[in-house]
Design a protein around this nucleic acid. Sequence first.
DNA 1: AATCCACGCAACCGCCGAATT
DNA 2: AAATTCGGCGGTTGCGTGGAT
Length: 268
Amino acid sequence: MGRKPCCAKEGLNRGAWTAMEDEILVSYINDHGEGKWGSLPKRAGLNRCGKSCRLRWLNYLRPGIKRGNISDDEEELIVRLHRLLGNRWSLIAGRLPGRTDNEIKNYWNTTLSKRNLQSHGAGCSNHPQAKPPPPPPQAGGEAHALPEGTSSSPIRTKALRCTTTVLAAAEGVHEQGRAAPEHVAEEDQLGDCLSIGSIDLDLEGIELGFMMSPWSGDGGGVGGQHFGAPGTEGMGNDLEELLGLGVVGEDGNGDGHGGLGDLELAWL
DNA sequence: AATCCACGCAACCGCCGAATT
DNA sequence: AAATTCGGCGGTTGCGTGGAT
């Protein structure tokens, strides 16, 4: 099981991609589909390492990628999910259609982590779990960002990537997702959470508690899939399913994505 | 106007687990 | 069952850009 040599190969192009390379990659993938990254460069005629091609595709060229302008809703969700999951960027990205793990990671590292450092007390802090300072880069691999002395731990799951091609509908969702700003202002006060139900999960030995609440009352019915209203069968789903709610396949979906906005997770 | 500095983003690196042989 | 390969993830680095001095 030695490390694979991967791309530390001489003679391969590195650094920024050219428009020509992008074009070659896109057209190759359009014709042959994703996958086989190791041999893709050769087959496509790219002088790049496979991983580099994959990264370029996933983070930049893939259809449906949204870039920049992270909305308030998205930001809010990132913060919440990060609190919940730690640095599971791919998992977080799975809940943000059109966003990539890399983008979210960058956004966190540049914007939110700083903001969180400053904002003790601002807005989100009356919760014990509020804002661990950005995860001290792990000691021990993936031990994630745990506010010490807490009883909670980021959930470890496998990432459910929403590789979805993003649907136009999602855009609207982001705009409308939060119909009531006031709600957001209060949302961290968990007591005020518009809870429509709560569940306890025991996932991989970790006991979790959630409260779920509709993100917005009406707001155009964001997303549409409110999993598990109390008493519905969705309630028993495990966390992956829960977080992957609405995760749909490549083609999927329409609006299957539960979307931002249709639920809110908060630590009990 | 020129230089310096801080920031944001794209890309790379290394590790890990899953799949395959 | 063990070895090898592949794909994916998270952390880190380096470059380009914009703002401040």
